[in-house]
């Protein structure tokens, strides 16, 4: 049975009419604009992009590397601002997001839109001009994918929203790699696939214990549309794909034993937690919370070990060059 609210099919900023909120002078502070950039998401994006940049072969001047990371960070922040502009209506009814600047009325929708578009333009142009145009084009595509494909199109339309939309969060290591090499290869695609297959178990674990929140907002997340059991089964299936992908960089000889051991141990924990989620039945949510929390640590550990083992030496050498 669907839990999605009736009449929640179409909303977004257009539903509020043509007013974009420029008629009253704004009280928005710099802090409100920083909140629009989703700083926590931005930090994860910068971290994964840094890993892609550090493990890539070749040399890059430290200032060019800094510029690339800055542009990726600003581009990610711009996507967040555009997401908050479009999703202000559903953010307002969800507990987790109701205190964001747009639903709170501190930043007007038009301001968030202008801010996001301006930063997107500057980030893409600067990355293209100062680093290379492949990296710039990938950043532009990432922003487009997150804002148009995920936020505007998929999020309110299908329970596969975070599966396909998850690609947007998986691009940063590829952009980091492209910033150094000006090309792409199997290794950055592997990093992309790890984040891509990590996203569904991570977000569905959250969605399982926030299903009512998503249902109230009319978002067709998998637990809302297909129910508890199907979601738990899907979480385990995606984890079964994710764990070998996590080990793949070692198996293909891109990394050392330390990464391989880390991927195997943390992957085994992910599988155990995924199995516990499957065995747990509604309304129990302890296993879901555990999986959600550990999945963050899992991704962080994989990329941190990769950064230390493969990238750190190269990064130090580049900084010294």
């Amino acid at each position: 049975m669907s839990l999605v609210s009736e009449g929640a099919d179409f909303r977004g900023p257009m539903a509020a009419g043509p007013d974009v909120g420029f008629d009253e002078p704004s009280l928005a502070t710099v802090g409100d604009y920083i909140a629009l950039l989703k700083p926590r998401v931005m930090s994860l994006v910068v971290f994964t992009a840094l890993t892609g940049l550090a493990v890539a072969p070749g040399s890059l001047h430290p200032l060019t590397a800094f510029t690339a990371l800055l542009c990726i960070a600003v581009g990610a922040g711009a996507s967040g601002a555009l997401n908050m502009w479009y999703d202000a209506d559903i953010d307002a009814v969800m507990t987790r997001t109701s205190r964001r600047p747009v639903p709170m009325g501190r930043v007007k929708p038009g301001e968030a839109l202008a801010f996001g578009l301006t930063l997107s333009g500057f980030a893409v142009a600067t990355l293209g001009l100062l680093v290379n145009w492949l990296a710039g084009a990938l950043l532009a595509f990432t922003i487009f994918f997150y804002v148009v494909v995920y936020t505007v199109w998929l999020k309110r339309a299908t329970p596969q929203n975070i599966v396909i939309g998850g690609a947007a969060g998986a691009f940063p290591p590829m952009i980091g790699w492209a910033a150094v090499t000006g090309s792409l290869s199997l290794e950055p695609i592997l990093l992309f696939l790890i984040i891509f297959f990590w996203t569904p178990p991570h977000f569905w674990a959250l969605a399982l214990y926030r299903a009512e929140d998503y249902a109230r907002a009319g978002i067709p997340m998998l637990p809302v549309v297909s129910g508890d059991t199907t979601t738990r089964r899907q979480i385990l299936l995606y984890t079964l794909v994710l764990v070998p992908l996590g080990i793949a960089p070692w198996a293909l000889g891109y990394t050392g034993l330390f990464y391989g051991l880390t991927a195997m141990v943390t992957g085994a924990i992910m599988l155990v937690l995924g199995w516990q989620v499957l065995r747990e039945s509604r309304p129990a949510e302890t296993a879901c919370r555990r999986l959600f929390a550990f999945s963050i640590l899992y991704l962080f550990l994989l990329f941190a070990v990769l950064l230390v083992e493969r990238g750190w030496g190269g990064l130090i050498a580049r900084l010294a060059a």
Partner: peptide, 22 residues
């Protein structure tokens, strides 16, 4: 900061500032 960044990057890249892969 953007002006400074472009200035510093111009110094880093030297005469080849506009020469970029693809």
């Amino acid at each position: 900061a953007l002006v400074l960044l472009f200035y510093a990057m111009t110094l880093v890249k030297g005469p080849g500032v506009l020469v970029r892969p693809l």
